[in-house]
Simulated assay, not measured.
Amino acid sequence: MGIPVIFLFLYYVACLAAASPNIPAVIVFGDSTVDTGNNNQVGTILRSNFRPYGRDFFGGRPTGRFCNGRLAPDFISQALGLPPLVPAYLDPEYSIEDFAKGVCFASAGTGLDNATSDVLSVIPLWKEVEYFKEYRRRLQRYAGKAEAMRIVGEAVYIISIGTNDFLENYYLLVTGRFLQFTVEEYQDFLIDRAEEFLRAIYWLGARKISFTGLGAIGCVPLERTTNALAGGGCVEQYNKAARGFNVKLQELIGRLCATLPGLRLRYAPVYDGLLHIIANPSSYGIENVDRGCCATGRFEMGYLCDELSPFTCPDASKYVFWDSFHPTEKVNWLMAKTTLETSLAEFI
């Protein structure tokens, strides 16, 4: 991330800190958009704990974040007056003392559909909930029951999930979901899974929740590459699926808030924000919107994105995407800002 964005972010943090109540922790569930390193500890090939991932992170250190630097939850945590990093729950470098101020259960490659996590042998969403239960028990032993319940009840929850269900599952025909469901039926199936998940964490104490809608998934470089015969533009079929899912997600949020006492579940709208960046890159100091910074930026991610490529760009802040699938640190900061100004605004 370039120097101007750092200054803007520090100014933004200062403004929020002056008005924010005491939020004790940021708790994260989801996929690679928010995984801060859990996949380093599981038996999967879907990892990013090597350079050039993390080259713009503190100390240039790869952590397992699928990015050149920090992710949106890291920026959100810092903006709320908490540590500048949200630690991965499975990272042995961190303890319950660290997790009391923020913890990430997310796993790159997972989805709302359990079959999605099987594709690359990552942590399914139900297991993330089990880790949350374990975390609550550890927190009670560390801080006492009353304080632990306060932290769980007053924390803000960041949920970002669903992209892999479509791009690594449904549209790739890996699990047969394409044969089982129409797109609309699969959206409904995923919404049912989202409801089960949200009810589970609600009964475990979660109240202040931001659920990130799907972005313009048809515009990630990998999908543009596969769309080369049509000119390499965004795949509208995939974007339409994302928009339909987002509408149904917002309807679910309304139903749950009407039936679960005390629930403050809010929708984080990233779809339009991402499209605005792609359509108006110069407004953000961005020059490239259709390929990633790492390697050729057209199909590489994970182990295909490594330091041996001579094509990796020198300045990721001029790109929307870091690899063929994931945003740069700069765009993660912009998405964090959107979340703070929308779904998290009432908690600040």
Rank of each mutant, 00 (worst) to 15 (best):
Y12D: 04
G64A: 05
G81N: 12
R243D: 00
R264L: 14
K133V: 11
C257M: 06
V119P: 08
G111I: 01
Q237V: 13
I96D: 06
F66R: 02
G54N: 14
Q41K: 10
T36C: 01
Y284T: 00
T116M: 03
W333I: 02
Q250L: 11
I286K: 00
Y303M: 02
D118A: 14
T116Y: 02
A316M: 02
A146D: 13
Q78K: 14
G254L: 13
G285N: 00
F311K: 13
P73A: 11
G285C: 02
V247C: 08
A336C: 05
R291N: 08
P84F: 15
F245Y: 13
L263M: 08
Y142C: 13
G233K: 07
P87V: 04
I159S: 02
G302W: 03
Q41R: 12
R47I: 03
V34Q: 01
I253G: 04
C257Q: 07
T225V: 07
D98F: 07
Q237R: 15
R141E: 13
C294W: 07
R138V: 11
E329N: 10
L229M: 07
I286H: 04
Q187E: 12
A206C: 10
Q187A: 10
F58M: 09
E307C: 07
K127M: 10
P269K: 00
Y12C: 04
A230T: 06
F347G: 01
K133N: 06
E329G: 10
G144M: 13
V183R: 03
C15K: 12
C67P: 06
T328K: 08
S32P: 05
K133L: 11
S107R: 09
E185A: 14
E287Q: 15
V331G: 03
H276A: 01
D113I: 05
N280D: 01
G285Q: 01
Q237A: 12
I217T: 00
L222A: 11
M301F: 15
G109T: 07
S117I: 08
F58E: 13
A216N: 02
F178C: 12
L125D: 13
P221A: 10
L90H: 02
S117A: 15
T36S: 11
T212K: 01
P62Q: 06
L125A: 10
E341N: 15
F66T: 00
N169Y: 04
E251I: 08
D323L: 11
S107V: 08
S160A: 15
C15R: 15
T342F: 14
L172A: 07
P21C: 09
V174M: 05
R291F: 12
K240E: 13
S283W: 11
G254D: 14
F105P: 01
R136P: 02
T226K: 11
G262F: 12
A230H: 11
Y94F: 15
K101H: 14
E93T: 11
D113N: 10
R177N: 15
N246H: 12
T33R: 10
T342Q: 12
I123F: 02
